[in-house]
Nucleic acid binder design. Sequence first.
DNA 1: AGTAGGTACATGCAAACGCATGTACCTGGG
DNA 2: CCCAGGTACATGCGTTTGCATGTACCTACT
Lengths: 161, 161
Amino acid sequence: MASGRTLANEAWEALLSAHATTMKRVAAQDTWTEISIREYDVLYTLARCDEPIRISELHRHVLLSQPALSRLVDRLTRRGLVERQPDAADGRSVRLSLTTDGRAVQRQAGRRHARSVARALTARLSRPELSALEAICLKLAGQAPAPSATTPAAPRRPADD
Amino acid sequence: MASGRTLANEAWEALLSAHATTMKRVAAQDTWTEISIREYDVLYTLARCDEPIRISELHRHVLLSQPALSRLVDRLTRRGLVERQPDAADGRSVRLSLTTDGRAVQRQAGRRHARSVARALTARLSRPELSALEAICLKLAGQAPAPSATTPAAPRRPADD
DNA sequence: AGTAGGTACATGCAAACGCATGTACCTGGG
DNA sequence: CCCAGGTACATGCGTTTGCATGTACCTACT
């Protein structure tokens, strides 16, 4: 009998394998001459936000340590793709938003990236499988099924271990 | 309304989110004092192999550049966890296997790791969801021929690619 | 008000990474 | 046999990362 432990570990291993394989396929594209995938990840997250967000919020979306993210944002700021503004409500915090250039770079890379991702996934998974994958992964990530606002006010993340 | 492109991209974003979130939860455990997660990944892959494997084969399982993997193996060798042997059939190649110490370290870290992974996944996903996730991810990784969502735990071999 | 403790981000430093390239070896055409 | 081209792994070098820690700020309790 496959215990819950074993089943969960097999599922995790499969997810890791799918992630690594697809990531390699996507990274092999010629999309990443201007910016790296990690930089794109930051630009993309910023592009999805209506209001400037904090670094700590950004940190929740990115698999990087806080210092690494801080310096990554620093580089993007120096390159004129991201703008830093002080937070009126909190003196410790920094608000980040895309510049016009940053949005343009994100859009251009995003178009190619979306194409190669779609190519990689639709070649192997059917539409129902894609839907199921999305639903399960969102649940695993601890998000509501509705992909709505990105406002940081509502603490809708159960921060359990 | 959701085109195949959009659906695929949403699924990929969900997978990335699930990966990052779960990875952070797992990385926050105190499992990684002896070895890092990436080092464990290598030890685990070696532990699953009956015969010594090449670095290039290892490289297919790990999301690292070839030079980075080469040096990671170098460190593990210097620490006495991995053994390098020349390949009789191919003079360019190197065969890798775990030492007794390496196997012990892998087992100890693996036990804790498996527990925390199981905790993270079973807290959020049901058994059918775990099965479906595994099946879809294996298919996405290019390893599973079965299209059914309710795949029984067949004795799957560590096939290459 | 003063202070202890927590949060948000930055920085010093050693370790690790990716890219380009080097070295050794294998393979196939002449 | 020789050599061009490809594969497998290693190494030089500049960049990036993580850990530990520092700085500035907010919060709460006394």
